[in-house]
């Protein structure tokens, strides 16, 4: 299977404060990966590095086999931001307008959308079961529905990989389950590679194929037993102690 994301010995620090030290992992085509970790562990920073918004202090990142410094195919990388539209809830735009906006790379600079772009927009909304809400203002949709519109906005470009930053924040339990089911369906039916940053280890672990845990500047791969152990001991021991045990048997700088 081809590598979609390759992170090699990446270190990063904000000023003199180190966030990661020699982190490495690979994501393969068709993977559904969850990156978990406590608040402040650096999950969102890792996403910013993957989006090229921050540059690593050392190490290298490759997206779709291209060095991130020279990467140009950003439309192939779908990104769903944290909190969706919560800060922009009164923005006067319909679901359809928001999804269509992401077709820029296909429409072109200073050009207007054509019939084919309208059909792609419609199809994308159908994929996330939101076609019936295409003419609704984004502010009139529930948190879960807004998140689906964000997914449709990414899917409209037929991305090779989708990066999600805390996709379940601010949505109710039923909508969270429905969102995970939708992501699983997209992953299985379309082969879409998904990398999701989340602290919702309990529910996410039932759906993803790989779980990476970020803590104390290191990244470790957790298997199903370790996740169950983590969940059952949640309030008894700090995660750090068990991660050190895990690291004892596995090189955290290695290629997962």
């Amino acid at each position: 299977m081809s590598k979609v994301i390759e992170v090699n010995n990446v270190s990063f620090s904000y000023g003199s404060e180190p966030i990661f030290s020699k982190v490495g992992f690979s994501v393969y085509k068709g993977d559904f990966v969850a990156i978990i970790g406590a608040n402040g562990a650096g999950k969102s920073t890792l996403l910013k590095l993957l989006l090229g918004e921050l540059a690593p202090t050392s190490g290298s990142i490759h997206l779709l086999n291209q060095d991130i410094h020279h990467f140009k195919d950003w439309p192939k990388i779908g990104y769903v931001p944290q909190n969706g539209f919560s800060a922009n809830v009164n923005f006067p735009a319909t679901a359809e307008e928001i999804v269509k906006a992401n077709l820029f790379s296909q429409i072109g600079f200073l050009r207007f959308p054509k019939k084919e772009h309208m059909e792609k927009t419609k199809h994308s909304l159908e994929l996330v079961d939101m076609a019936a809400y295409s003419n609704r203002l984004i502010g009139n949709l529930s948190g879960g529905q807004q998140q689906r519109v964000l997914l449709a906005r990414v899917l409209v470009n037929d991305p090779e990989v989708m990066l999600l930053d805390e996709p379940t924040t601010g949505i109710d339990a039923a909508a969270v389950q429905s969102l995970y089911q939708l992501l699983t369906r997209l992953n299985r039916e379309t082969g879409l590679t998904i990398v999701m940053v989340t602290h919702d280890i309990g529910r996410a672990s039932s759906y993803v194929s790989k779980t990476l845990c970020l803590e104390e500047g290191s990244l470790v791969k957790l298997d199903r037993d370790q996740i169950n152990d983590e969940l059952s001991h949640k309030h008894k021991h700090p995660m750090k102690n068990r991660l050190q045990q895990i690291q004892g048997g596995e090189d955290n700088h290695g290629d997962f």
């Binding site: 989006l51 918004e53 439309p75 923005f91 735009a93 906006a101 992401n102 077709l103 820029f104 200073l110």
Partner: peptide, 23 residues
């Protein structure tokens, strides 16, 4: 008129607009 879709997307979400390829 010419920058209608670009201005809309930048006003909505500047980061995603950049990822979509908008200059």
């Amino acid at each position: 008129i010419l920058l209608y879709k670009e201005l809309f997307y930048i006003a909505l979400d500047e980061r995603s607009a950049r990822l979509a390829g908008i200059p």
